[in-house]
């Protein structure tokens, strides 16, 4: 009866494991590529939906150890964002992509494929290559990048990018010399000045240099550049500004991705660069498993208007102190159909909403109430040791289906969002953690 009322969900444990094949998109009206927007598939970095899936297998022990590493790295990212929001003015970005290379960690981030540049086709190329070419006889070079709504400067590794100054990547290195539409940003240009804290002087030939210092000490440096970016099947963003990295030392980028697509609120981000065309509106859907696909959309194509009634809305807050980050106000949490008994004042601080922070963090008073309600609904399962900051974990060995209490987040204005089962557990642990203080 509770399940029917939406208070609980019954999940077959088999559905929580990635399949060996890509189940593709769950398509609703309007959820298809459109000439009026930029629409691109979004996938886990590894798994059957990735264009270049990994063949590596992980043992259960590997997964447990790597999940702890992933959560530790995520905490560093969260700490860094909190520092930025207190007014710290350094130029570090909140990257917490792990320097370790386990399978589990790689599943904590989401990637999309973009085409960069225009490479002239030789006449001897195959029919397939010709089919992919642009009308002017050139084609883009596919690059797999992490999407990050918590940073502002996009970049990819560019030739030359020797190891170990750079990291291995699955796609061929982008070669500016082979692109007919590539240009370095001149040092004296407005685009170079707009780099602000990410500007790193000029090269000997007066090309604008960029540098990003990530929160964990990693860096990416190189030449700030223009080239055409193709996202999805229809649209080309001409003169996209991005970092052409020739070194990303100390790197947190052991992922074999080409770089990062920045969707933050700062002036350098893709969102701001495409403001005229797409009106500073973008959306994404993160897939529940590595065997399913999500999407990234820039703009609002008219055919998506029919979806509007199915959206709930809450005010989006921004801060001139840290324009990179997007924030919302959480007002209440409902567990198994019952609101937590938490004074509204506990939720008075905002929450950063971010595509690359993995675990949600709540004020301690709210977290403790959530944990108590969740544990009380999960007493039929064996408890398991904590994993890093995740202190509510279970041993589901031998369990064929899990009865999970529903969790809904209620945002300012009454927007109530029911979490998917994939949004409640990370591995076998409740995927929430507390902040350091209710007063943060």
């Amino acid at each position: 009866g509770d399940a029917a009322a939406g208070a609980y969900m019954v999940i077959a444990t088999s559905t929580m494991k990635p399949k060996t094949f890509c189940s593709g998109h769950k398509v609703a009206p309007g959820d298809v590529p459109s000439p009026n927007s930029t629409w691109a598939p979004l996938h886990h970095l590894y798994g059957p939906c990735s264009p270049a899936p990994s063949s590596a297998n992980s043992t259960a022990a590997d997964v447990a150890a790597s999940m702890a590493d992933m959560v530790d790295d995520d905490q560093r990212r969260a700490d860094y964002i909190q520092k930025r929001l207190t007014g710290a003015t350094d130029d570090k970005q909140p990257m917490a992509f792990s320097s370790r290379t386990s399978q589990y960690e790689k599943n904590g981030q989401y990637a999309t494929n973009g085409g960069l540049g225009s490479v002239p086709h030789l006449k001897s190329l195959s029919t397939t290559a010709t089919t992919n070419s642009a009308p002017d006889g050139t084609s883009a070079v596919t690059q797999t990048v992490i999407i990050d709504s918590g940073s502002d400067v996009s970049w990819v590794q560019c030739k030359p990018c020797p190891l170990p100054m750079c990291h291995r990547q699955r796609d061929p290195l982008f070669d500016p010399a082979m692109s007919t539409t590539y240009a370095a940003v001149p040092c004296t240009s407005a685009a170079c000045a707009q780099l602000g804290p990410y500007r790193r002087g000029c090269s000997a030939n007066a090309q604008c240099q960029f540098g990003i210092n990530y929160g964990d000490g990693s860096t990416a440096t190189g030449t700030y550049s223009f080239d055409d970016l193709t996202l999805g099947p229809y649209d080309v963003i001409r003169g996209f500004r991005f970092g052409c990295a020739h070194a990303d030392r100390g790197s947190a980028f052991d992922y074999d991705v080409a770089g990062s697509l920045a969707l933050g609120g700062g002036s350098q981000s893709l969102v701001q660069q495409t403001a005229t065309r797409y009106g500073r509106v973008f959306s994404y859907c993160l897939p529940p498993t590595a065997s399913s696909l999500g999407f990234l959309v820039l703009g609002v194509p008219p055919e998506r208007a029919q979806l509007i009634p199915s959206f709930v809305s809450t005010p989006l807050l921004s801060s001139s102190m840290a324009p990179t980050f997007y924030r919302v106000l959480l007002r209440a949490i409902i567990v198994a159909g019952r609101p937590l008994a938490v004074p509204p004042a506990v939720f008075s601080a905002s929450s950063v909403i971010d595509s690359s922070t993995i675990i949600s963090r709540l004020p301690p008073t709210a977290y403790q109430a959530l944990r108590a309600a969740f544990r009380s609904a999960m007493t039929m399962y064996r408890a398991a040791p904590p994993v890093s900051i995740l202190d509510t974990c279970y041993d589901f060995t031998g369990v064929r289906s899990i009865t999970l209490p529903s969790i809904a987040l209620v945002f300012d204005g009454g927007a109530t969002v029911n979490l998917d089962a994939a949004g409640i557990l990370l591995g076998s642990c409740l995927a929430f953690a507390p902040t350091a203080s209710d007063r943060m």
Partner: peptide, 30 residues
Amino acid sequence: PGFIGNVQQKTLEVVYDVPAKAMRFRTAAC
């Protein structure tokens, strides 16, 4: 601040509508 992490965003369509100062959500979108 707190955080709304990417685990909790799974299967939601999350719309960042900057000019309207609105964040929109749609469940079971992917």
